[in-house]
Amino acid sequence: DALRSGPQELDWFYVSPAALFGSFAPGETTGSYRLGGDELVTDAEGNSEISGTDFALAFVDEIEQGKHRRQRFTVAH
């Protein structure tokens, strides 16, 4: 809320990972990911996971492309 109510010239984004993310669930690197808004991204079976490398890819893509300025979004396989 503090970022959203900040001055318009403040450039930020917030990336939320899938439900299964972290050292306890390293996941498989695929080189791709799916995007969602404020909702958890799941597959057809209801699973939500992403590897650390694919999460990093989504983060770097956002820095380079800036498609979610002043927004929160979610990533998963």
Results as ranks from 00 to 15, higher is better:
51 S>W: 04
6 G>L: 13
26 P>K: 08
24 F>E: 13
10 L>G: 02
5 S>I: 07
23 S>I: 14
39 E>D: 13
52 G>Y: 07
37 G>N: 00
25 A>T: 12
20 L>C: 08
25 A>Q: 13
19 A>T: 02
49 E>V: 07
25 A>L: 07
45 E>A: 14
30 T>Q: 15
36 G>F: 03
32 S>P: 04
35 L>F: 14
16 S>P: 10
15 V>Y: 06
41 V>M: 00
33 Y>G: 06
46 G>V: 12
38 D>Y: 08
16 S>Q: 01
7 P>V: 14
50 I>Q: 06
37 G>P: 01
18 A>V: 08
33 Y>M: 13
39 E>L: 05
16 S>G: 07
17 P>Y: 12
31 G>R: 10
28 E>H: 15
51 S>R: 00
41 V>T: 05
34 R>A: 11
42 T>R: 10
49 E>L: 15
51 S>Y: 00
9 E>M: 04
52 G>K: 05
10 L>R: 05
22 G>Y: 07
26 P>M: 09
10 L>D: 06
35 L>E: 09
44 A>D: 10
27 G>I: 07
38 D>A: 06
13 F>C: 00
15 V>A: 06
7 P>Y: 05
46 G>L: 03
9 E>S: 10
31 G>T: 01
6 G>E: 04
14 Y>R: 10
18 A>T: 04
38 D>F: 13
43 D>T: 03
48 S>F: 06
53 T>R: 05
11 D>N: 01
28 E>R: 11
36 G>D: 02
37 G>I: 08
47 N>S: 06
28 E>N: 05
49 E>R: 14
48 S>H: 08
23 S>P: 09
34 R>I: 03
45 E>M: 09
25 A>V: 15
37 G>Y: 01
47 N>P: 02
8 Q>L: 15
6 G>W: 07
17 P>Q: 05
9 E>V: 08
43 D>W: 01
6 G>R: 03
7 P>F: 10
35 L>Y: 13
41 V>N: 09
9 E>L: 11
49 E>G: 12
25 A>S: 07
21 F>H: 01
14 Y>G: 05
20 L>H: 01
12 W>H: 03
32 S>A: 12
23 S>C: 11
25 A>G: 08
5 S>N: 02
37 G>Q: 11
21 F>S: 01
46 G>S: 11
14 Y>L: 15
24 F>V: 02
14 Y>K: 13
45 E>Q: 09
32 S>Q: 14
34 R>M: 08
22 G>H: 13
41 V>L: 11
13 F>N: 01
38 D>W: 06
38 D>L: 12
11 D>M: 11
37 G>W: 09
19 A>I: 07
7 P>H: 14
28 E>V: 14
50 I>V: 15
30 T>W: 10
41 V>K: 02
12 W>P: 04
39 E>H: 04
5 S>F: 00
28 E>C: 13
39 E>S: 14
47 N>T: 06
12 W>S: 00
37 G>K: 02
32 S>G: 03
18 A>N: 09
13 F>W: 02
21 F>T: 01
25 A>R: 05
35 L>K: 06
20 L>E: 08
38 D>N: 06
46 G>N: 04
29 T>L: 12
